[in-house]
Design a binder for these strands. Structure first.
Length: 239
DNA sequence: GCGACAG
DNA sequence: ATCTTGTCGC
């Protein structure tokens, strides 16, 4: 699929922050696909020198991974809370670009608008892909929320500076909550509805789970094994 | 100045 | 994120 080139990536942290403040004005935080069939998820792993990215395409109708792509780039940007996309998005986009079908929804491992400047990695990917995107993070970056039932499916608003920016979402009974927020072309209500609708046999939604373990396998050396990992996580026999 | 801080 | 053995719990 096509990726818009709205800016360069070799920026200083200071310039990256200014860019986020400019790009966030272009976000569309409403709407969202009704019943997405094709869902893409991307995630990255790291070592001292490289970023290892994997994108998977999930067929929600059949409940399985139908395509896996990988990409590797040298590490060029440090980890700075709030600037995650400048570290891994170029690699994730390299992995997403060759997917043979345009997804109805993109899932990112990290925040959407639940971010200091309202522009987390899910927003960045969504804007450059011009696709509906939501962020699913395993821990909190900003904001606060009230008590949350331990029951799978439960959710409470996540607020930051007096505004709701997402949800604390209990994806499975008793597990630590996930933090779901809109990335682009999705509203708050739809972000939660979509997160609830994606199959999750573990804490993370299956597509993200698959991309996560596959990126780790990819970093550890073998592309064939990477694909096997993704497919096995999607429910196929690990043949 | 101090504490917080996605992956 | 990654480095790492055993260990508590369903």
């Amino acid at each position: 699929m096509k990726v818009r080139r709205l800016h360069r990536w070799d920026l200083s942290p200071r310039a990256a922050i200014r860019l986020q403040e400019r790009l966030r004005e272009r976000l569309v935080l409403r709407g969202g696909p009704r019943s997405p069939r094709w869902i893409a998820a991307a995630d990255a792993s790291f070592d001292d020198r490289f970023v290892y990215g994997v994108a998977v395409l999930w067929d929600a109708t059949r409940g399985e991974i139908v395509e896996v792509r990988t990409a590797r780039r040298p590490l060029t940007f440090p980890y700075v809370p709030g600037l995650l996309s400048f570290r891994e998005a170029p690699t994730l986009l390299d992995a997403l670009r060759p997917l043979s079908r345009k997804p109805d929804l993109v899932l990112a491992d990290g925040q959407g608008i639940a971010h200091p400047r309202g522009f987390g990695v899910a927003c960045h990917l969504g804007l450059l892909l011009d696709l509906p995107t939501i962020g699913v993070a395993k821990s909190l970056l900003v904001g606060e929320h009230g008590a949350l039932s331990r029951r799978a499916g439960a959710a409470v608003p996540l607020r930051f500076r007096g505004r709701q920016v997402g949800w604390a979402f209990r994806s499975r009974d008793g597990v630590k909550p996930l933090f779901v927020s809109p990335g682009h072309r999705v509203g708050l209500a739809a972000a939660l509805r979509l997160a609830r609708g994606i199959r999750r046999r573990f804490r993370l939604p299956d597509p993200i789970r698959a991309a996560d373990s596959a990126s780790r396998a990819f970093r550890r050396g073998n592309v064939a094994r990477t694909i096997t990992y993704a497919l096995s996580v999607s429910g196929e026999a690990s043949a």
